[in-house]
Design a protein around this nucleic acid. Structure first.
Length: 201
DNA sequence: GGACGGTATGATCGGGTATG
DNA sequence: CATACCCGATCATACCGTCC
């Protein structure tokens, strides 16, 4: 399935990855991954293991919360068959979900500082726009820019000229613009697309 | 000068599988 | 058989360039 909301780079990366896999003869593994890549709410966090090679037949519950992995297997043999094992797996998954912290919210994710952040403020950057004058001289015009997600893979932007507003005011306005935009941001990062427990509100 | 678009890079989560 | 590790998928940031 191809969602039109995907960013172009993601789409390009996937194409590149698929080509690389086809070249390396790993396409069958990719098909298996696609087949098992469920997105339904009922199967959230649950995957099937059918490996002749490792004599493994059963269901597995695996959830990750803030880097912490929670995993438990439900082999068919032990639970009296495929269906019974799945029932147990779902029950365990539901119990686990009720105890675990909720997934990252989109707002949390958006305010997390990245390692490549240079401004010290997530989503707010200082950058220079370069102009070449007719005499060949290159000048730089500095801005503070705020960006924020607006859905459909799009970004909202607003830039503030340092030349016009001054360093402090341009920066403050960029921070304020982003804060205001994030007020409208709700839902969960990633898990909201995967059928995590629906949030109340 | 500001709006908008492009894309490389980073973080998180989940599935497949190697390992003990 | 249980679990840790690896990697793909997905979503977002962090700039940077171009157009109006």
């Amino acid at each position: 399935m191809v969602d039109s909301s995907w960013g172009r780079s993601n789409l390009a990366n996937q194409v590149i990855n698929q080509i690389a896999r086809a070249i390396s003869g790993d396409e069958s593994a990719m098909q298996t991954r696609r087949k098992n890549n469920n997105t339904s709410k009922t199967m959230y966090g649950i995957s099937r293991m059918d490996s002749e090679r490792f004599y493994t037949h059963g269901w597995r519950v695996k959830l990750v919360r803030r880097g912490v992995v929670y995993v438990k297997n439900f082999p068919d043999k032990r639970w009296g068959g495929n269906r019974k094992a799945l029932v147990q797996a779902k029950a365990y998954r539901d119990a686990l979900l009720s105890e675990l912290p909720e997934p990252l919210t989109r707002r949390e994710f958006c305010t997390a500082l990245r390692s490549n952040n240079r401004s010290g403020i997530s989503g707010v950057y200082r950058y220079a726009k370069k102009y070449t004058l007719t005499n060949g001289k290159v000048i730089e015009s500095w801005y503070w820019e705020a960006t924020w997600p607006i859905g459909n893979g799009q970004q909202g932007h607003q830039s503030f000229s340092v030349n016009e507003l001054g360093e402090r005011k341009a920066k403050a306005l960029a921070i304020a613009a982003r804060e205001e935009a994030l007020d409208d941001l709700d839902g969960y990062y990633w898990a909201s697309q995967r059928g995590a427990p629906s949030q109340s509100g």
